[in-house]
């Protein structure tokens, strides 16, 4: 990618985060029942969205690796999956910190959405551990692609857990009526998506550099 485009993208991302912060802290009204704690949602929901997006892109590239056996596909899958996992950790941090003042507790093991999400986090933590444990690039790519595909099957389960189990604490998809709240949540989703692709791109570049060095050394 042209460095001018990269810096423009990074600048737009930084600007979108500033606009998002202004909206969340100064512009949008507080929820009448949850008060300021509801503002965590402007960070929690987009974090969850980009993590799912990362796992889905990683899933597609893992299939492509198994099909074409090209290490660049594995590098792209790893970049998106690992970045997705970092954002999943973000969801696990922000969710309980919202739950404590509203539910009175950090975690509820009876909530299937939380349990399936935690399983997802563990599965992809396993993916990262697996990648660090296998030195041979092709062997690493093969095993991690399989694990990525299996773990990604939990993504629809997380998404539909509310409909399947009718979870008591997580509400069904809600409609936001306040226009300011609607604009703020869409801005947050856009800002997080820009940031996510920026980080995933930088990570992908790392894998590409590593691949080029290994090819030069003739270790592939």
């Amino acid at each position: 990618m042209n460095s001018a485009i990269f810096y423009a993208w990074a600048s737009i991302t930084a600007l979108s985060w500033l606009v998002m912060a202004w909206m969340v802290f100064l512009w949008v009204p507080s929820d009448h029942l949850q008060g300021v704690a509801q503002r965590i949602f402007y960070y929690h929901v987009p974090t969850a969205w980009v993590s799912m997006l990362g796992f889905m892109i990683g899933f597609i590239y893992s299939i492509m690796y198994l099909w074409k056996r090209k290490l660049t596909y594995d590098g792209t899958a790893a970049a998106f999956t690992i970045t997705g996992w970092v954002f999943t950790t973000g969801v696990i941090i922000t969710g309980p910190l919202w739950a404590k003042p509203i539910w009175g507790d950090f975690w509820n093991w009876g909530d299937q959405r939380l349990v399936t999400f935690f399983i997802l986090w563990l599965a992809f933590a396993g993916y990262i551990l697996l990648r660090t444990g296998i030195p041979d690039p092709h062997k690493r790519a093969r095993f991690s692609s399989i694990l990525n595909i299996v773990a990604a099957l939990d993504v629809p389960l997380v998404y539909y857990s509310i409909q399947i189990w009718n979870t008591p604490s997580h509400p069904k998809p809600i409609t936001v009526y306040d226009m300011k709240m609607k604009i703020a949540i869409y801005t947050s989703v856009a800002a997080f998506t820009l940031m996510f692709f920026l980080i995933a791109y930088i990570y992908k570049r790392y894998f590409t550099t590593e691949l080029m060095i290994n090819e030069k050394r003739g270790s592939l």
Partner: peptide
């Protein structure tokens, strides 16, 4: 509540 908002966003 503000304390939890601050903590959540800072950690993220």
């Amino acid at each position: 509540r503000l304390f939890y908002v601050f903590l959540a966003i800072s950690l993220l």
